[in-house]
Amino acid sequence: MYLYLPVALTSINILIPVGLGLAVGLLSGLFGVGGGFLLTPLLIMFGIPSTVAAATDSNQIVAASTSGTYAHWKVGNVDFKMGLYLLVGGFAGGILGVQLIKLLHAMGNADFVIKITYILMLGIVGVYMFIESLQSMRKKTNTVEEAKEEKESAVGRFLKSLPLQTHFVKSGITHSIFVPIVLGAFVGILAAIMGVGGGFLMVPIMVYMLRMPMHVVVGTSLFQILFTCIEVTFLQAYTNHSVDFILAVLLLLGSTVGAQIGASFGKKLKAEQLKILLATIVLAVTVKIVFEITLTPSLLLSQVGGH
């Protein structure tokens, strides 16, 4: 059955957005990512204008991350304190990133910087997570613990010397409040440049730099994404009029259920298995983008706006 989308001004088979929502919601609940880096290009592929695809994606992520955050909160996997500090940093970084994008547009090379940033960030994150997870799965537990301790002591001295140290009970770690704020700002800048929520960057940063346990990472990332996407949805609706309410409802029909299934399924997987799965998806997206920019496109013109 087809439904007409009043803002996208196109008609779509309802099975497509519901199915895509279910798949992306599953990833969201499993890995703590919003899934924008996957869903937005897929929506464009199915004929949704790029501006509407990006804005509506944010809207549905609000639903999926609410569902996912709730599911993770019920099993005690959300570090609200850490999430709030990351949000503060992310918000500041987002503002800075938007200014950077304006500057790049004025210089005329924004698209090049965005694409290269995409490939580099996705590639580095994907390869690092994949190799690290593979090694962790192969090595004995005690060896991994030793390696972690060595790494922590090297970076730890500097981090512990920072002022305003505070303990994050849920994650079982102690950091200066500046650490999550600065890292949140870093992700915020990149997310603004790349036009995505930044979940796939935030998750590895929480795992490898903040040393948070993987299951708390997923819940906390979703909590942070929820607020980011509420802000983005409102701004997109208010300034660009590009949120398609009907498309968002169709997507969230699938994604909210998918997020619950993902959160439930995630509990049955080990941390290393979760990481290697996410790394594989991130690497697949990287390869797709590399193909996109190296193979001659079928159309040399596209709508203004979107990614």
């Binding site: 809207n59 549905q60 609000v62 639903a63 999926a64 991350s65 609410t66 569902s67 955050t69 709730y70 599911a71 509420i230 949805t233 409102f234 997109q236 609706a237 208010y238 300034t239 009029h241 949120v243 309410f245 968002a248 409802v249 969230l252 029909l253 909210t256 259920v257 997020a259 619950q260």
Partner: peptide, 20 residues
Amino acid sequence: PAMYGFLSIGVALGAGFGVS
């Protein structure tokens, strides 16, 4: 647009909690 934005967010939050 402001009301539309709030409506979109409200429905998304409601759907998220509802399914939960």
